[in-house]
Each structure stands twice: as C-alpha cells, then as structure tokens.
C-alpha cells in the first residue's frame, strides 16, 4: 500500500567470467582477458578468445594448449567461447546478476543487515595471506601437472580429515571460487574406501561422471527376476502437467527401475534384522584387532 519503492539505479558492470573480476569498461575487460587468460605461454602472442588460443597453439606450436591461465578452478576449459561479455553461459550471467543485485541491496541495507556477507575487499592484502595463497596455487598447479598426486593413495586408516581434493584459493573467507558443478562429479567418492566394519553387502561403487548407481541385485538366481524396466509405466506429460499420474509418486516409479530394485538377501543369510545386527557386531570385533 503505502510502501515506497526504493529507487535504485543498478548498473551491472562488465565482468570477466574466468576470474569474476569487474571492470569499468568493456574495453578494459577485453584487454584483461587477452593479457590474463588468452596469452600464449610459449610466445608473446595474445589471442582474442580461448578458441583462438587453441588454434594458435595447435598450428604455430604444434601442441595441445595448456589450460587457460589465471582462472578460477574449473573455468580453464576451451569449450566455452567467451569474448568480453559475449558467450557467458546464460545461467552464470543470471546468477551473477542476482548476486550483484543482492549485494547492491545489502549495501543499501547495510545498517539493518547483520553484516554476514563478506564483500570484496580492495585493501592491501597482507603479505602472509599472499604467501599462503601462492603456496596453495603452487600446490594446485603441481597437482594438475601430476594428477597422480592429487588424491593421496588410500589411507589405510579411518578416513577422517582427508585433505580437500580441490584446494581453493580463497583469500577472503566465505568467498568461494566454485568448481563448476559439472566438473568434479564423483571423482573422489570411489577414492575413499569406507572404513572397515560397517559395510553392508554392497562394497563397491564404480563412479564416473554420470555413472549409473551401483547395481543392487547381485543375485545369482536370475529366474526370480521377472520384472524388467519395460514394466515400469510412466505416464508421459499431459496438457503440460509433468506428472499426471495420481496413483504413484515419481519416487515410487523410480524405485521400480531395474537399477534401483532391491532384493532382500535370501532367507537364512541375513534376512532378519537380528542376524544383520549380529553380523555387524562380528565385524566390529574383527575391526577391533586392527
């Protein structure tokens, strides 16, 4: 009703997708990208785009290009062609805008907001922080050049406090350079062996990028498995309604798919909760000797 709308002039500055830095001017942004991210590491040549750099490397130096330099983790790929503000994934752009708007909003409400948000600090960064950041960066680069050492070999002991697989360069606490969600999916899960002792029957899950989940039916008697995926009838969208089925939830239908189907262990092995418990107790005793 009588609420006054705060009139805010909100201007989105040009920014670099590779390192999330803001610039006053699109021209400066282009200069920055050329010299920081699209510079050839073998000659003084600077290219306009990631694709240009790749072609340059392949044709002039006859080698596969190094990952892009000075980028946030995970943004050093050649697959996205970005020139200034052009070519930035729409999703990233929208999210950035939302973030900037939120920041502008919080800045205006700085008095009321409880100051939880950490903003960029343009002060002089203490030398100690710089040294620490450099060390982290070196570790990251070393890890990249020598992938074997990224993930430590299986520790024989309990996996508490395993060092983070992707050391991030965050000088300002709370400000997270994020690996893109598509990148590290499930690399580490298989790296950490579950501690001995608590393992239910299924021990291994082979995981790759978008791996199917472990098969839950390690049964030998195939004859009992009569149902197949084709038996799972999922109603297609109707009149725009994505799930027109009113008799079962998406999760219930999903659970019927072959890859999720679970068969109880045959009677006698570990059917009852009691024997299951006893089994885990037994393992516990074994683990005590370790």
């Amino acid at each position: 009703m009588g609420k006054k709308k705060r009139t805010q002039v909100f201007v989105l500055k040009p920014w670099c997708w590779y390192c999330e830095r803001e610039f006053e001017d699109e021209k400066v942004l282009l200069q920055h990208q050329k010299s920081k991210h699209f510079k050839c590491q073998m000659c003084p040549r600077k290219l306009n785009t990631a694709g240009g750099l790749m072609v340059h490397s392949q044709q002039v130096h006859k080698c596969e290009p190094e990952p892009l330099t000075n980028t946030l983790p995970g943004r050093d790929g050649y697959d996205i062609e970005i020139f200034g503000m052009e070519g930035i994934p729409t999703n990233a752009l929208a999210e950035w805008r939302a973030r900037k708007e939120a920041e502008a909003g919080t800045a205006a409400l700085a008095a009321t907001a409880n100051g939880k948000r950490i903003r960029h600090s343009y002060n002089v960064i203490p030398e100690a922080d710089l040294i620490a950041a450099l060390a982290q960066h070196k570790a990251l680069m070393a890890a990249r050049n020598n992938p074997g050492s990224v993930f430590p070999p299986f520790p024989g002991s309990f996996p508490i406090g395993i060092p983070p697989p992707n050391p991030t360069l965050n000088r300002f606490p709370g400000e997270m350079p994020m690996p893109p969600p598509t990148l590290p999916t499930g690399m580490p899960p298989s790296m950490y062996p579950p501690p001995p002792g608590f393992q239910p029957p299924m021990a291994q899950n082979g995981i790759s990028g978008v791996a199917p989940p472990p098969t839950f039916v390690p049964q030998s008697n195939e004859a009992t498995k009569v149902l197949t995926t084709s038996d799972v009838v999922v109603e297609p969208p109707k009149d725009g309604v994505m799930w027109p089925d009113v008799t079962a939830s998406p999760a219930e239908k999903r659970a019927q798919q072959a890859r999720y189907r679970y068969q109880s262990p045959p009677p006698g092995s570990a059917e009852s909760a009691e024997s299951f418990e006893a089994a885990s107790r037994k393992r516990k005793a074994a683990a005590d000797f370790l």
């Binding site: 996996p159 395993i162 060092p163 997270m176 579950p194």
Partner: peptide
C-alpha cells in the same frame, strides 16, 4: 568448513530415501 572438504561416505545396499 571453509574451504570445503570431501565428504565421508557411508554406503547402503540400495538407494537411500
């Protein structure tokens, strides 16, 4: 924590709901 660390993973014989 900051920075984020790898999670501890506990497996089950079937999907967890």
């Amino acid at each position: 924590t900051i920075p984020p660390t790898a999670p501890r993973i506990f497996t089950h014989p079937a999907a967890v709901l």
